[in-house]
Design a protein around this nucleic acid. Structure first.
Lengths: 130, 130
DNA sequence: GTAACTGCAAATCCTTTGCTATGGA
DNA sequence: TCCATAGCAAAGGATTTGCAGTTAC
C-alpha cells in the first residue's frame, strides 16, 4: 500500500475518534484538512484500511461505524441515549477458550455488542435497577 | 398488528430456517406459497417483525440475515467455508453479570459473533490446531 | 366502514465503479 | 517511468416509499 495524504488523514481521524464515526462523519472531518477530498476516496480508503486490518468496521443498528484497533473491547449501545460505548473485554480469553473447547472451533476474532441502559440514563430514572 | 397471510408465511419461513436467510432468500421461499408476493412486502414485514421482536436481524459480513428467537445463542462465521453456525450461549449469564457489575450498566440483549475456522474446515487441513 | 395491508413502480440512500489526471517510489 | 491513488460523476444494489386497490376485524 502506497502512501497518500488522504489515507493518512482518514486513518488518523479513525484512530483519534472515540465515537465510532461513520463514513460520512469521517468524510466531513477529513475535509477540514483536505477540503477537496471526495466521498469516493473516503470509502475506498476505509475499505483498504479494513482489509489491511488497520481499522475495524462494526455494524450497529443498521449503520456502519469504524473503529480503531488499539485494544480488545466490547461495545455497548444505550437504547435511551443511543450512545455507543467501548467496554473492557471482560473475561474474553476465558470465554473464547470455553467456546472453542465446547464447539470444537478455532476462533480468531469476535464482535461482542450489548444493548441496554447506560449508568447515566439509569440515574435519570429512565429505567430502574433490578 | 393485523393478520395477513403474507406476514404469517414470512414468519414461518424465518422460524423454520436454520440457515439465517437474507431478505432475498425469504422472498424466494415465500414465493413458493404466495407466488405474487412482492419484495417490498417482504421488506415491510421483516421490519415489522423485527420491531415486534418476533425475529432478529443480524448483520454479518456486510449482509443482513434474519434469525428466529427460539433460544439464546451466539453466532460463529467460518472464514473458510463462509458457513454461519449457531453456537450454544456458553456462560452468557455469567458474562452479562460480570459486565453489568464492572461497567455499571443494565444489559437487556446482546449480539455475539465469533469468526474463525470450523471443525469441518480444520479437518480438511485448511488450518492447524494450535 | 375503516384503517392496515398488499402489489407495483418509482424514489432514495449508501456505496462502488469507470474514467482521466496526478503523484509517490 | 509506471502503477497506485485521487477526484468526479455516473452506475449499482438494497431498501423504502407513494399510491391505488384490497382485506381483516
Amino acid at each position: 500500500m502506497r502512501y497518500s495524504k488522504q489515507r493518512e488523514s482518514i486513518l488518523e481521524v479513525v484512530n483519534q475518534s472515540s465515537n465510532h464515526p461513520t463514513a460520512e462523519m469521517i468524510y466531513w472531518e477529513v475535509k477540514k484538512q483536505i477540503p477537496n477530498i471526495s466521498l469516493g476516496t473516503v470509502y475506498r480508503n476505509l475499505n483498504a484500511l479494513v482489509d489491511a486490518s488497520l481499522i475495524k468496521r462494526i455494524h450497529i443498528q443498521d449503520v456502519d461505524h469504524y473503529d480503531h484497533r488499539k485494544d480488545e473491547h466490547y461495545h455497548f449501545c444505550c437504547r435511551e441515549c443511543q450512545t455507543l460505548y467501548d467496554l473492557e473485554a471482560t473475561d474474553i480469553k476465558n470465554l473464547i477458550q470455553k467456546v472453542e473447547k465446547k464447539e470444537q472451533v478455532k476462533i480468531d476474532d469476535y464482535e461482542i455488542l450489548f444493548y441496554g441502559t447506560c449508568m447515566h440514563c439509569m440515574k435519570k430514572g429512565l429505567r430502574e435497577w433490578n
